[in-house]
Amino acid sequence: MGLLNKLRQGLGKTKSNLSERIQNVLTLGRKIDESLYEELEEVLILGDVGVETSLALVEKLRSRAKEEKIKEADQLMGLLKEEIAVILASGGERGLQIEPNKLNIILVVGVNGAGKTTTIGKMSYNLKNSGYKVLLAAADTFRAAAIEQLGIWGERVGVDMIAQQAGSDPGAVVFDACSAAISRKADVLIVDTAGRLQNKANLMAELNKINKIIEREAPEANIQVLLVLDASTGQNAISQARLFSQAAPLSGLVLTKLDGTAKGGVIIGIINEMGLPVKLIGVGEGIDDLKDFVPEDFVQVLFEEANI
């Protein structure tokens, strides 16, 4: 209940734009014709769903309408919801998978400015509240004051941070953090990394190395790699998911800034293409505004008003 409300609040803009537009297209009594499909396609593209995925969705809708002999435009709505829900649910397990009585390591990666450090702050708050012993690793040694930024979050939440000086080797930080997490018997180690654009081969190699160090130094640990995506990102998000997954095996996505942008559509495309689950979503500036991604809620809120 609380979560659904929060989602509604956070997704308000998404809802009003995307589904109101869809609703407009699918007004009562309207007959299904070619221009209707074209309008639907436009609505999806405007929602950052992407040309390819939008076309595929509309194509599927078209053949289902034919098979199921649907004549009314508004009935199409239910079908579209179904199709999108199927895609959203297809990615795999959602939420953080924290295994009890062992070390869980969460490696957080993404492009510059996606919201990695803020997400880690909120994530550590949630985990600490659930009773886990959390440790942070400041492996963004590159960006000015990134370590300080994570440190402030650590203080706010009340969790320790393993850090070295700015400019030091992130691999060394991760190495230290793994042994600290093991010796302190932490439940969760969250590793912050420097933002990097996915086409920078040397930076992606560095990430690959960080991941390898984690695998080597904490072989018993349950390791999850999360890609943080800014919800206002366009089609480049797909390239991000693809190329980051080559550097480190992604477990899922965190979609941030969903309170600000009108579009949540990019995840449909990513889940469709990559088969990655959206694990968490950021729906506000508050420390408790990081939520599990629930496809049913997402679709429900997304299409609420359009469901005539």
């Binding site: 593209i45 405007l46 929602g47 950052d48 492009v111 400015g113 800014d230 206002s232 990102t233 366009g234 089609q235 480049n236 998000a237 942008t261 009108a262 579009k263 990019v266």
Partner: peptide
């Protein structure tokens, strides 16, 4: 403006 921004960039 982030060069990677999507359709929402015009609204922003």
């Amino acid at each position: 403006v982030d060069a990677m921004a999507g359709q929402d960039a015009v609204n922003v």
